[in-house]
Nucleic acid binder design. Structure first.
Lengths: 192, 192
DNA sequence: TGGTACATGTAACATGTTACATGATTAG
DNA sequence: CTAATCATGTAACATGTTACATGTACCA
């Protein structure tokens, strides 16, 4: 039984977008942008629940340009190179956003430290916990301020962009949950 | 104090452990275990806030064995190969757990989908939201049942292992926060 | 005797991180 | 003029994912 041998390279089979690339395409719906600006935009708009690095952005842009999902425009000031989304870029994005999103992944080093807390001096653990609690309290404050500012500055826009608002409120509820947890924590290593 | 056995590899520049490797060492404090069992243990004990794959575990074990942090024992049933933590493994673990843990990273695909929700049919988005809400409700239930079971079965152990309990309660508070958020979500795409 | 769970491992690739190299432009 | 910031990009490596290949033991 001979199997037909395909000696041809699979020619850039349109394998599904990853979420990072898809997000860049999402931002490019609003008009051409350069890598630098995409980094800033992404950090600001989705950075709280989808981290990315500058390096990744340039890599994804290069890959997407090779796949024809974006097109580079003429370089401008400071060699800035704008990318424009193409028709097939829009199609790929549409395909991506229609797919069921996967479950979130959380990687929480402090919880590992606590899990193995019996191997750590209680005071040191308490120190870590205090630092992290403060960081989370600060984040919550930041989110709440953002929401308040938004309401004050653009009472119309707030109702309008319910999508963005929803992600901000996620941040708020998340941080509240985390703080509730901090406040329930026992004093580790203490007799009880 | 006796020094560890002489024939050690010249240490491949002890660069700090990653959290996954450190966790494996953490589990090995309780006695030798094989890769298979480490996967199961890790999934069960830290899997909710620190994901890892079977493949990674074998890779980390091989790396750590080469670095002298663990030692393979004789193969047993079904070729099972137990690993034992060495003195320098304990030292590396101790060094790791004394380092300030980094902030958590969250990658939440559903939030991306919502952020770009204006490019998606409202019914489809509603579908995604409903699916995810159900998954989170189920998780919360699971955690709460776990806590209850634990209390019922081992009322002493529950107070004793405050470390493990703390991570379970994190899961509960997290899921409560997420559910609170789901319940605040507007109906996207609806006139308001 | 065959299917299933156990157990180890590799290959290939995708994604993420850190560090650096290079140049353009602006501000003081 | 000089430092800071803007902007692009690469190199090297670390980590994470998926798929597969191999073999062992149990149990129906």
């Amino acid at each position: 039984m001979s199997r037909p041998e395909s000696q041809e390279e699979p020619p850039l089979v349109d394998k599904p977008l990853n979420a990072t690339a898809a997000s860049l395409l999402g931002f490019l719906h609003d008009g051409p942008m350069a890598g630098w600006d995409l980094v800033a935009t992404a950090r600001h708009r989705i950075g709280d629940f989808w981290s990315l690095t500058q390096s990744q952005v340039y890599r994804e842009l290069a890959t997407m340009a090779a796949a024809g999902l974006v097109e580079a425009g003429a370089r401008g000031q400071r060699d800035k190179q704008p990318f424009r989304i193409t028709a097939s870029g829009r199609a790929a994005f549409a395909e991506w956003i229609n797919r069921e999103p996967g479950m979130e992944t959380i990687r929480f080093p402090l919880l590992l430290t606590i899990h193995f807390g019996r191997y750590l001096a209680p005071e040191r653990l308490a120190e870590f916990v205090a630092t992290h609690r403060a960081a989370h309290a600060a984040r919550l404050e930041g989110y709440e301020r953002e929401l308040a500012d938004w309401r004050r500055a653009e009472p119309a826009a707030e109702a309008a962009d319910s999508y963005r608002r929803a992600t901000l409120i996620f941040g708020i509820e998340y941080e509240r949950g985390v703080l509730a947890w901090f406040d329930e924590l026992p004093t580790f290593g203490a007799p009880n």
